[in-house]
Design a protein around this nucleic acid. Structure first.
Lengths: 269, 269
DNA sequence: CCTTCCGTTAGGCTC
DNA sequence: GAGCCTAGCGGAAGG
């Protein structure tokens, strides 16, 4: 981890520093007066002003004005995802001094073809750094948390639902997330998904329901509890006579938080 | 325009600098090791790592990892738009040193209720600056440019279209963007929109067509040329027996660029 | 005022 | 590989 800062470098110096930083795939932060041209999916110009420009190690470029959460201009860098990483080699950068004595930074890429030109008339600050960041990013609320929320507040599934056992072993079909009975005494199998439920979830639930039907002599309902049901899964769900219950991550999170608070207050008396 | 940089400040110094900068509504750029908690529309945690954190004058907060064009965490600041500006007062910031000796930056806002906590274990660089930026941002391709593109390449409208006059005065109904005749000799009125065409565009075009119908004895067609047709305008368009031609800004831009290139090469011989 | 829907959408997942 | 759809969507225009 290293950070080097250069206050008010000449454009010539800034060009050298920038070229070096780009070839070393470092993070560059520039504060300066610049104007910007973009051409690609659309075309735009940004007249001169003071801006914050960030060039990341993966070739991402951000031009930020003094206000606004979104960049005024940008270029996505190398894609993070594996799906497009092969065809996407990231931006190609070109740094030079124009005839007018300005620092020109050109970021170009193909697919989609687009070019971003930044012309600095003045550089107030140039920072080059190598950041080490392997910290995991995670949304709260795992599938396990969702289950805990349902067991805490069964009415999240429906009024009168009573969980019997969690993760019931259904033989070869695997495990049921939540198993219980409804207000009328029918068995209710709940399949939980943190993400929008697709066909796979429906098919899996159907296997559970079918497997249990061969073993007990009681009405059995199957229900998917997930933030949303994918469109392609809807006919399949209807055809399988299964049900869907919308259960948002936020709702689960609130239940768990409330539970935590309650436990704490119980503990404190 | 001023930029102050502080290399490796202690968390205590960083806290003071940050508080001061926030109360003066300046732009703050921090490079440091931090972890982040977010709770609001969703909830997330980001484990420790080196990050670039930007706090803008309007209260926007961005947490950027070394790669990726999008921030890993963020908070929108005061909204730019007039529509929500009244009810949105921006983030409320709180800066303090935790018991563990970390710099805690808390950005909270209501509506939607959300909180972003950033805990710096180490600050490598803190930059405070006041940026002056009144440069206009504009997408290329005006409505006038679109007209020029159509007059240059009438087949952008359809094969066989021949412009007769541009901006034909239609009496009280105003001006027609492009007026011409189609391959079969019918008059064709073209209404150009840079933005997705809505009901207003359809109604305006309908007025032109109706006005002209009372004055000439020839089949008359009306067509909207725009990047897209708004959904709510589609039934109106169909009911008025008018047509839609998709004309993207990009296509127009390319035609004009090509034209410019051609003129230049003509000029150069 | 609320709702809808557009974006230089980006990015992921299904088919 | 292409199309479809979601997003802590944000932001703007329509009703």
């Amino acid at each position: 981890m290293s950070v080097s800062t250069y206050a008010k470098p000449s454009v010539a110096d800034a060009a050298l520093l920038l070229k070096n930083a780009l070839s070393n795939h470092q993070l560059v932060v520039i504060i300066g007066n610049c104007w910007v041209e973009y051409e690609g999916r659309a075309s735009s110009t940004l007249e001169p002003g003071d801006r914050l420009v960030v060039i990341k190690a993966d070739g991402s470029v951000l031009v930020h004005r003094p206000t606004g959460y979104e960049p005024v201009n940008w270029m996505p860098g190398r894609y993070n995802s594996s799906s497009k990483s092969q065809k996407q080699a990231g931006c190609v950068f070109q740094v030079k001094i124009t005839d007018g004595g300005e620092l020109e930074v050109r970021a170009a890429r193909l697919q989609p073809s687009e070019v971003l030109n930044i012309y600095f008339t003045k550089v107030f600050l140039l920072t080059v750094s190598s950041l080490i960041d392997d910290g995991a990013f995670s949304l709260y609320v795992t599938e396990y948390d969702m289950k805990r929320a349902i067991l805490t507040k069964p009415h999240l599934i429906e009024e009168g639902f009573r969980p019997l056992t969690a993760e019931k072993d259904i033989g070869k079909s695997g495990f049921i997330d939540v198993f219980g009975e409804d207000a009328r005494g029918a068995f209710l199998i709940v399949e939980i998904k943190r993400v929008p439920a697709g066909k796979d979830a429906v098919l899996q639930l159907d296997r559970y329901v079918t497997a249990l039907r061969g073993r007990v002599n009681r009405p059995i309902r199957g229900m998917i509890a997930a933030p949303t049901l994918r469109k392609e899964a809807q006919p399949l769900l209807a055809g399988s006579k299964l049900e869907f219950r919308c259960l948002s991550l936020k709702k689960c999170y609130e239940v768990l938080k409330w539970e935590r608070t309650k436990k704490l207050s119980d503990f404190l008396g």
